[in-house]
Amino acid sequence: MKLFNNLFAYHFKCTARVFLPLILGVLLLAGFTKGMELLSKLLPFLTALYTFLLIISAFCTIGMFLCIILLSIRHFFRNMTSAHGYFLFMLPVKPSMHLSSHLFTYVIWLIFAGAAAVGCVFLLIPNNAYAQLGTILDQVFAVLQIGENRMITLMIVMVLLSATAFMCTIYAAISIGQLAKEKRAVTSFAAYIGIYMIEQLLSVCMLIVLFSIFGMDLFTSTAVLAENMLLSVMIGSSVLYVLIGTTSFLVANRLFSKHLNLI
């Protein structure tokens, strides 16, 4: 446990150097945009600047997630396959713990980013639109006849599972890539394509299975059927993510344990 804590602290510290300023920066930008919105009501000539900032902020909020995902991948690739790998692999630590500590760090940052994104959305929505947003959400939930809390929780769980499973497949791809003596990044990418195709295949299979259970009558718009359908797809997807994630994790673990090839 102590080793895991130390590892997590190490990864967190390494990534915080970039991620913390990134997240705070995006929040600050959203806050600044909000300020500009209020200011532009007093000084109408600022409206153009405000609109510009609003667009930039929106892109930055989305870009923040992209950055975190891409940089997490880079962090893992660098730590496990380049010269930096010497450090991690000289530690008396099982490869599974290297995988789980990287994964845990990534998920923590995603949660922070998610919280920041929610904050940004609230900041970026113009004051007069708040009421409208509430109405829209209520209508959506009414149509689907699912309790808001249940839906939101399920969605968050799904998003996290999906993101985690995705990262696990990346780990598996990189673990395959490191088997090569040269062009390891390219090999990892090729491996990922392969894994992605298998993933898609499994997803399609799952959907086919679910549709056949509920009958192919997609056009029946009875609310009850739709709710069950949606729930099943969501639960089915979650199960698939867990399956893919776990398998990828095991593959990566096996390769890093028995076929380590640090250059």
């Binding site: 930096h84 000289m90 530690l91 630590v93």
Partner: peptide, 29 residues
């Protein structure tokens, strides 16, 4: 790995780390 000490032929540590960080890092592991 708990009783073998290895010195690679390449630099393998994060170069933004301070000496004190490195000492703490190694003692922790």
């Amino acid at each position: 790995k708990s009783y073998v000490s290895y010195l690679p032929d390449k630099s393998y540590l994060n170069d933004w780390m301070k000496l004190s960080d490195l000492f703490t890092l190694f003692s922790g592991f």
